[in-house]
């Protein structure tokens, strides 16, 4: 297969000294990435545990809190993230097929989607802040609410802010691999960073898949 590679177009790459072949290196990186994703699951798991505990204790509070969120904005963001996930997955496929241009376009489109997500999130946060909905003790909402609704919004802000942080990190990572793709560093025999960043980006999507119904929909 390697004979198909146009060496003018792609920069050949060597396996690190402590690996015996490229397959071993790729599989090691992938296992390492999965272990890292495991730590991310556990990290978000903590917030979800807090969510479940307080939801079982104060169901009315959580229903009242969920009503204050705009599910339409949440749905738009879900669609945006899923789109970006699809384009990211296809971008890896294009890299595997040595189609540099298409891969780059898809990666950049993924970045665009991620930015769209952030913009929608900005409007959501902004609206909440205008109404005085802040986490915890700073909660100064004036309309109807439950007496301890700040707890719901503490969890909402902690969960979404941590998620937004991951989105930003993910975007930076995608920009980094886009740049390297443009330089022609990735081709069918070596695309480990794209694959890793892809896994990371899917994780971001995965967490939102749970955050969306739990925070916005279930009242």
């Amino acid at each position: 297969m390697s004979s198909k590679v146009d060496t003018n177009k792609f920069i050949p790459r060597f396996v690190s000294h402590h690996f015996s072949n490229a397959d071993q290196e790729f599989e090691s990186c992938k296992l390492g990435m999965w272990l890292f994703l495991l730590t991310e699951f556990m990290l978000f798991g903590g917030i979800f545990v807090a969510y479940v505990v307080f939801r079982t204790w104060y169901p009315e509070t959580f229903e009242s809190g969920a009503e204050k969120l705009d599910w339409k904005m949440g749905a738009v963001n879900t669609v945006i993230l899923i789109t970006s996930s699809v384009t990211m997955a296809v971008a890896i496929r294009e890299v595997q097929l040595n189609r540099k241009g298409r891969a780059l376009a898809l990666l950049l489109f993924t970045v665009l989607c991620g930015m769209g997500f952030l913009v929608v999130k900005y409007f959501e946060y902004n609206h909440k802040f205008e109404l005085g909905i802040f986490p915890g003790d700073f909660f100064s909402f004036m309309g109807d609410h439950m007496s301890n609704e700040h707890l719901y919004f503490s969890i909402y802000f902690m969960a979404t802010a941590t998620h937004v942080l991951h989105v930003i990190l993910g975007l930076l990572a995608i920009l980094w691999v886009s740049w390297r793709t443009a330089k022609g560093e990735f081709y069918e025999a070596y695309y480990t960073p794209v694959e890793m960043v892809g896994l990371y980006w899917h994780l971001v999507d995965l967490i939102w898949i749970f955050l969306f119904p739990l925070l916005y929909l279930t009242k």
Partner: peptide
């Protein structure tokens, strides 16, 4: 002991 592209990884394209 660096290995060139001949010991390459072959992607599983879906």
């Amino acid at each position: 002991d660096h290995h060139g592209p001949e010991s390459d990884h072959h992607p599983h394209v879906l």
